[in-house]
Nucleic acid binder design. Sequence first.
DNA 1: CCGCGTTACTAACGCGCGTTAGTTTCGGAC
DNA 2: GTCCGAAACTAACGCGCGTTAGTAACGCGG
Lengths: 352, 352
Amino acid sequence: MRQDRATSKDVARLAGVSRTTVSFVLNERHDVLISEVTRRRVRAAAIELGYHPHEPARQLAGGASRTLGLVLHQAPEQVAVDALLAETLRGLATVARGSGFRVLVETMAPGPDGYTDLLESRQVDGLIISGPRADDVVLRDPASAMLPIVLQGTLSEAVVPSVDVDNRAGARDAVEHLISLGHRQVACITNAPLAYTAAADRVEGYRAALREAGLTVDPTLLAEGDFDAASGHRAMAQLLARGRPFSAAFLASDTVAVGAIAALRQAGLDVPGDVSVVGFDDVPLAAFIDPPLTTIHLPAFELGATAGQVLLDTIHGDAVAFQTTLAATLVVRASTSLYRAGTRRSGGAVTG
Amino acid sequence: MRQDRATSKDVARLAGVSRTTVSFVLNERHDVLISEVTRRRVRAAAIELGYHPHEPARQLAGGASRTLGLVLHQAPEQVAVDALLAETLRGLATVARGSGFRVLVETMAPGPDGYTDLLESRQVDGLIISGPRADDVVLRDPASAMLPIVLQGTLSEAVVPSVDVDNRAGARDAVEHLISLGHRQVACITNAPLAYTAAADRVEGYRAALREAGLTVDPTLLAEGDFDAASGHRAMAQLLARGRPFSAAFLASDTVAVGAIAALRQAGLDVPGDVSVVGFDDVPLAAFIDPPLTTIHLPAFELGATAGQVLLDTIHGDAVAFQTTLAATLVVRASTSLYRAGTRRSGGAVTG
DNA sequence: CCGCGTTACTAACGCGCGTTAGTTTCGGAC
DNA sequence: GTCCGAAACTAACGCGCGTTAGTAACGCGG
């Protein structure tokens, strides 16, 4: 196996045909006429020799790599904390394999580095960019509009197709749920700095729900998270320190929520007794932490699968939707409860 | 950009030299003598044309793909739950890039499918197999010993180099910690079925610690987890139902631990008041759940990086250690406390 | 003037495959 | 016997690159 690989020439010789015939048979070209006897003979020879076509060679000859690139264009901290990456990757890989494609992963710190190398060197036929950054020039350059690139996420003014979850609607559902339980003062901690569109959209949904319910949006009830649980802890501590009472909170990421809940506990507050909490993402552990987290389910597998499908369609030259939005649905568990005036803190948290 | 790519021929023409010279210059072959003037001219031409070497072509000509394959040879449930995959992948990608390699990910359900296709078709220069299964024939076939394959994990009788965390020592440290706090009845829930070597090793470490402390190993205090939190919940419920008292538990996975802790709570038991708990893995959320989890830190990034380095060494023909073991160290947080006889349940949990 | 080493390049092959344009064989219709 | 079209193949090119062997120019000692 270490020694000489079998080439299609070897197969041809063993089967007593030409290399061309071997290629036709193994690529199942039914438009060319080859007798069933010959086909069988070729296939048998290929198996006997343990023949595997040399991939780089067929990529060179065929002009396509049958490989999809997944660019993780995010900071290490984010990646480390992204509990859903595995699922997304699995979704992408599943769709890719279904079409005979493989998946190449490129991790890269945010910056001006070019991921287009992958494309220009023809190592991949298309790219999925996850975690797009506002400073990304390629995604805005009109010339890129024709490249097989799909955004997983949202970026204003991007010129390439994108697939994303409906962050705004999900957030609104989350907050509407809290309002329907009678809560009137609802705090919010973002999942990330507002420069990230996903974070901005979720806050937007939060505001929309409040407005639609005729409630005022109080900026002192908003704090900023930064991906990990520690940031959620800090943000909640800030919120409590401000002294503005609230009986519920929308925490725009489960990971951030876990930190925030810890902060609430340390302040002597019970969840959901004193403060009801809704998260976002529905990470695998969400159902099992204490209390089981009411959250917005992010369809991670579908996200990867859909992005992959859109990219494949783009590569094949099919028309694709410029923007695909997946629904994120509310999952009610035990971290939310009816608002009861006169609870321990008279319906609102006070300074910790 | 959609139109004709620039080839090295175009660069040669523009620079007024031959294609060979272009190749020498761009590949920084300093062993061939080319004047600095020419070098500059070639580089300028390449930039002007936006030239990117055609990767499949150089792979064909060069005989190497400069790509590493990561095979996730595990069931979907595992992947979904693997909070550390992202970190491992990042570690691998970092090392790979450092040597000019890319990373191709192949997810695959357990089974007899051949991941060696990747290798035989020369799409990758080497493979890292994560989550090896006992039924894997390739890894035992002596003929495979010379293939550039590295195991991330442990498999008895495997003939390829492996990189793994010291599960046994980590587990022993965990249990020793509990014993040092005065606990004498220590339960254990595995992270996975015992067919998985990692699970078996952790149980082994658990037993060793007990024996070394002169304690008896009670099989009724052992239950089996299955990757996710739900399995931890079930396993802990079983343990409680058996009625055998214990004041501490070693839960061989943080994810499983989260489920187990939920079950303890439902049985009216406090952690660590009634039962001290040590986990394994140190997932990102471990420090922030309630109570902050004492656990064994798994160096995920290093695991990926080390596996990648060993694979690169193998590919380059360097001698590599057949087995590399990374230390997993105890992180003490708040889920463990001193054993106090006469606590609520007189030092032990009883039937729930 | 010749021979010879050094410098700076280039012509041309081969990597393994897909594919186009052709060739041969063969059965039947006239 | 000839012609012809269909059937079953094959020869040979080209994909874009790395690389080996070879060449041309040049200086310099003899």
